[in-house]
Design a protein around this nucleic acid. Structure first.
Lengths: 143, 143
DNA sequence: CTGAATCCATACTGATACTG
DNA sequence: CAGTATCAGTATGGATTCAG
């Protein structure tokens, strides 16, 4: 059952939220939803970065913030909650004072970051080509 | 030079647009920028879907629109322009009347979609786990 | 047929201030 | 320390209309 994004993928058009299932054969269920869900998580501004940062080490809130320059407290919190909800990281609160909260990658999160790494490799290797292409395009359309 | 998203990735914080380079060692250049660029393209709502649709076939504008239910004329146009600019697809206009424009994947686009496919596979295989995790999380936090 | 231009609703993100 | 709450700017996507 090796993938097939092709054309049945649309999360949803009219309804702003992706709810209705794509009416393919009853068996193929809604792969589009699955893909969209993962993309929404991977594609946002900080999730992948947080997961990558947690790849090797278990870290607490403030440590994460230091490791990820530019992230706001708010966005770090929101991102962590999402990742936790999706089962990609775990959040453990130690009953101390002052409070200590540590975040750690789950096994699921671990498999995802491996994939993401290969995407990162692709990005790094091919970015020059993309940059060149953009320059050429912009030049041709500058008029 | 196998990747390392870790912590130096931030596109940019304060400046709304990702312009300033991350001042790492002069050699490692801005991998963060590369990764962010690719993610911005891959993560948006339609790009990956368009690329996937073009994977096997060369298609014209209207055909693409039919293959991708829910996409608006505007978003199809914008998405195609971006992909063309990045060198992931080519756009060829046939001097006929009525006009015929065909879009085709480039070699670069071809390598990207292969990666995207494995991500899609991951999404399909692990989505049940994510769904379960979400249900559990929502249940635990419903109060 | 293949778009470009305009307008509008919403979603995402960041800055800031406050709390157990 | 580790958040929450509120507010505001920007970006994104869709609907509609017009054009070569």
């Amino acid at each position: 059952m090796s993938s097939t994004i092709t054309a049945q993928m649309p999360g949803e058009p009219a309804t702003t939220t992706y709810e209705r299932s794509c009416e393919g054969s009853p068996a193929d269920s809604n792969h589009g939803r699955a893909i969209r869900d993962v993309l929404d998580r991977v594609g946002d501004k900080w999730s992948l970065l947080v997961v990558a940062t947690l790849r090797k080490q278990r870290l607490r809130f403030t440590e994460l913030q230091r490791h990820i320059p530019g992230i706001s407290q708010r966005m770090l919190t929101l991102t962590l909650r999402q990742l936790e909800r999706d089962g990609l990281i775990t959040r453990t609160v130690h009953a101390e004072v002052p409070p200590r909260v540590e975040y750690e990658l789950t096994a699921l999160g671990g498999t995802l970051i491996e994939l993401a790494m290969s995407l990162a490799d692709w990005a790094i290797q091919n970015h020059p080509r993309i940059e060149d292409s953009r320059a050429a395009y912009d030049h041709a359309h500058s008029n």
